[in-house]
Amino acid sequence: MNLEIINDEQLIPTARETWIDQLVDYAAKKLDLPDDTEMSISLITDEKIREINREYRQKDRVTDVISFAIEDGEDDDLPNFEELAEELDIPRNIGDLFIAPNHVAEQAKEYDHSFDREFGYTVVHGFLHLNGYDHIEPEDEKVMIKLQEEILDGYGLKR
């Protein structure tokens, strides 16, 4: 997995970036993604994620993670990026996550989880969204949550 982590404001220690990279790599292997699959994670302030949430989701509030999947299937005029990447023999880019670590820390306290568990949950949850998983319909939610828990438990981030 080729993961770019953007942590310009040092919202988490640089050493934690390796942990994030390893977690995403573990999740990618669980989904059997090609090793050269690409994505990014931007670690941003609560104010910035609120701004993005307001602009792109019309929700004027802070959230933990926002995912922008390249292959979200909403625009039928776009090519099938997975097929195109294979045809052109280039890495497949699944999209971008924006995560607000300070909000994740607040949620960890609220839910009585460790920061690692809550941050790992946030990363994996967003990662699954980038890979087409959703939880709008109850049947889809069961699939996504089960896979999410398998990844977190397997990585050692049990409740």
Score class of each variant (00 low, 15 high):
R61V: 13
E17F: 03
F68W: 13
L130N: 11
H125C: 04
A15H: 07
L152T: 05
R57Y: 15
Q58M: 12
L3G: 09
D116K: 09
Y155N: 00
M1V: 08
E17I: 07
E118A: 13
N80M: 01
F98H: 15
T14F: 11
E87N: 05
H135I: 01
E51H: 11
G126P: 02
L147M: 02
V62F: 06
Q148R: 07
I151V: 12
R54I: 07
E83I: 01
E118N: 05
G95F: 07
H129R: 14
A108G: 00
I52S: 07
V124M: 01
G95N: 06
D134G: 14
D75Q: 09
T122L: 00
I49H: 10
F81G: 02
E4F: 09
D75V: 07
E74G: 03
I44M: 12
L88W: 01
E17L: 08
I145R: 13
H135F: 01
A85C: 02
I49K: 10
T63D: 10
D116G: 09
E74W: 01
D21R: 15
L147S: 00
Y111C: 00
I6T: 04
D36F: 07
A105W: 08
Q107A: 12
H125W: 02
K146N: 08
H103M: 14
R61L: 14
E118D: 09
Y56F: 15
L128C: 14
K29R: 14
G156N: 02
K158D: 08
D140T: 03
E51W: 10
E106G: 01
L130R: 06
D32Q: 15
P91M: 00
D75F: 14
I44Q: 08
L31W: 11
R61N: 12
Q22F: 06
V143L: 05
A28T: 04
E71W: 03
N7Y: 04
L31I: 07
V62K: 11
V104H: 00
H129F: 14
E150P: 07
G132C: 02
N7M: 04
K109N: 12
L78R: 13
E139Y: 06
Q10G: 06
V24N: 03
V143S: 04
G154T: 12
L78F: 08
G120V: 06
E71P: 00
L130Y: 10
F115A: 06
F68A: 09
Y155W: 06
W19S: 13
D77K: 09
H125A: 03
R50Q: 15
R50H: 06
H103A: 14
D134L: 04
